[in-house]
Design a binder for these strands. Structure first.
Lengths: 197, 197
DNA sequence: TTAATAAATGAACGATCATTTACTTATATT
DNA sequence: AATATAAGTAAATGATCGTTCATTTATTAA
């Protein structure tokens, strides 16, 4: 028996993410990935069954990292404002500190891979956020909202828009925009103004 | 001189969008596109210089269609609430009636193609929305917001989240969600609650 | 020290890729 | 009716694709 080289497997993940983000789904290939990692293509097929498996597995792993980071220290029993603030801070921190991962997740959401990757991973989140929403309405910290989706759009949509602007920094719409805490807290304040009774 | 077959060029655009959305950037190829359109690959190279040119040109065209549709009947002189409502309605209508185009635009935003496609197309929009924002603040129809990006995130972020849920309908997060006017107007109402003095 | 075994590889497979070339076809203008 | 010219094509180019296979290498357990 020989142990799998953890450094090599991590290198593969890291370089795969980099290549996918920088060159897109077209532009990414197994042979290029192997070359960049200085390993044999065949080694990739020891780690993963096929290309789709590689992309899917890495996608699942990265999005789980993001979900976990976003919910760090969160509890459905937190007051509505505190809970929302914590999640905004967590999510923003993750996106800033894991730029490539955040971009990859965004790419995967808008690709045919999404169906496999995000199939079940969201039930857990939905449960937790749904409970938080329910508590908040019951405690009159939040105006009555029946639809989870309406709630989500209002409570998190603006943050994701800000993060997107930041990611697009060098191109397109977000030119000259820099995300920082001041911008985030100002936005959050107005979101809370709308959502609280 | 022989005239270019408009029906054929439109068929190419339509099928290219369909293939890109349904099979992703990997999964799309010039040869497959030609076969689906029952034309020769070489014909594609009469219409477009190369693959990237094809994707970029179609992307520019579709996003211009979307921007134009979103701003239909809009004027910076409309009251803040009226202007916002109109844009929400326009944008929602476009996304529902042009599902594939809306999905393609979303894919392109999160791809390396974005830099070429959306390079300049946004200055116009930013001008118009910026003016509307300014007027609204001056007329005290809107709380004072300094940053255009903060404003955009709050005013449009929730709508785009709703549309995304609707697009993801069959997969992932948006399972069982159906976009309709009631949902849109309820969300808009709360957005306005936050944004108006 | 050795036997067992999984990790890792180099080299190859046929398929498909983007793109080009030499050629034919259709039509607008004369 | 003839000519010019762009549209359109069939077939091929070499490169690269995803994947496999026979073989070697490293390491664990005995």
């Amino acid at each position: 028996m020989r142990k799998r080289d953890d450094i090599k497997t991590e290198l593969v993940k890291e370089q795969a993410i980099k290549m996918l983000v920088e060159t897109g789904f077209d532009g990414f290939s197994m042979q290029k990935l192997a070359k960049v990692c200085n390993i044999s293509v065949a080694t990739l097929y020891i780690y993963y069954q096929h290309k789709e498996d590689l992309i899917s597995k890495i996608g699942v792993e990265e999005s789980n990292r993001m979900f976990t980071a976003t919910l760090k220290n969160f509890s459905s029993d937190l007051s509505f404002a505190d809970g929302l603030k914590l999640q905004w801070e967590n999510r923003a921190k993750f996106s800033l500190q894991n730029d490539l991962s955040a971009r990859l997740i965004e790419m995967l959401w808008n690709s045919p891979y999404a169906e496999n990757i995000f199939e079940n991973s969201n039930n857990h989140i939905k449960d937790i956020l749904g409970k938080h929403l329910k508590n908040a309405v019951a405690n009159k910290q939040l105006i009555p909202i029946k639809s989870f989706f309406v709630f989500w759009s209002l409570a998190y949509g603006p943050l994701y828009a800000l993060i997107r602007f930041h990611q697009e920094n060098k191109t397109a719409f977000g030119k000259n925009f820099k995300f920082n805490n001041q911008v985030m807290y100002q936005t959050l304040e107005i979101v809370l103004k709308g959502l609280t009774p």
